[in-house]
C-alpha cells in the first residue's frame, strides 16, 4: 500500500512542471501504469485528491492508461501480449520469456495545463480584430 507515497511523488513532479510552464492549474494528468507495476489503480485514485490538495492539481482529472504485459519471445522472434494470470512464457511456443517489454510502467505521460496569461491573452484577442 504505497499508493499514497506514489500519489505524492506524482503531484510533486506534475506541480513543479506545471509551475515551470507558467500554468494556473492542471486540468488532466495522464499516467501509464503497467499491469504488473504493483500499483492498485483504485488505491491511487483514493490517494490522489489527498496528495493534490492545495496544489495546481487540486481539481485535476486523473487518467490512467493501462499498459498490458508484453514479452519478447526469442524462439518465435516476436513480441507477444500476455493475459492474466501472468505466466512469463510464450503463449505460442511455451518457451520461457526472459525479456519483458512492457508491463512495469509507472510513468507520468503528460499533463494538460491552463496557462496564467489568460486575461492578457483575451485582451490581445479582443484588439486583434477591431
Amino acid at each position: 500500500m504505497h499508493e499514497l507515497s506514489i500519489a505524492c511523488n506524482l503531484v510533486e513532479t506534475a506541480d513543479a512542471a506545471a509551475r515551470t510552464a507558467g500554468a494556473s492549474r492542471v486540468r488532466v494528468v495522464r499516467l501509464q501504469i503497467g499491469a504488473i507495476a504493483g500499483i492498485a489503480e483504485e488505491a491511487l485514485r483514493f490517494s490522489f485528491p489527498i496528495a493534490a490538495a492545495n496544489t495546481l492539481l487540486a481539481q485535476a482529472e486523473l487518467v490512467v492508461v493501462p499498459v498490458p504485459v508484453q514479452i519478447y519471445c526469442a524462439a518465435c522472434d516476436q513480441p507477444h501480449t500476455l493475459e492474466p494470470p501472468y505466466v512469463l512464457r510464450c503463449p505460442r511456443c511455451q518457451s520461457p520469456a526472459n525479456r519483458l517489454l512492457h508491463g512495469r510502467e509507472l510513468q507520468i505521460e503528460s499533463i494538460e495545463i491552463e496557462e496564467k496569461q489568460e486575461e492578457k491573452q483575451e485582451l490581445e484577442d479582443a484588439t486583434a480584430y477591431p
Binding site: 506514489i6 511523488n9 506524482l10 513532479t13 506534475a14 512542471a17 506545471a18 510552464a21 486540468r27 488532466v28 499516467l31 509507472l106 510513468q107 507520468i108 505521460e109 503528460s110 499533463i111 494538460e112 495545463i113 491552463e114 496557462e115 496569461q117 489568460e118 491573452q121 483575451e122
Partner: peptide
C-alpha cells in the same frame, strides 16, 4: 485560450 499539453514522460518514482 486552449489548454496546453505538456509531455513529461517521467517515472513516477523519478
Amino acid at each position: 485560450m486552449p489548454p496546453r499539453i505538456l509531455e513529461l514522460r517521467q517515472s513516477l518514482l523519478e
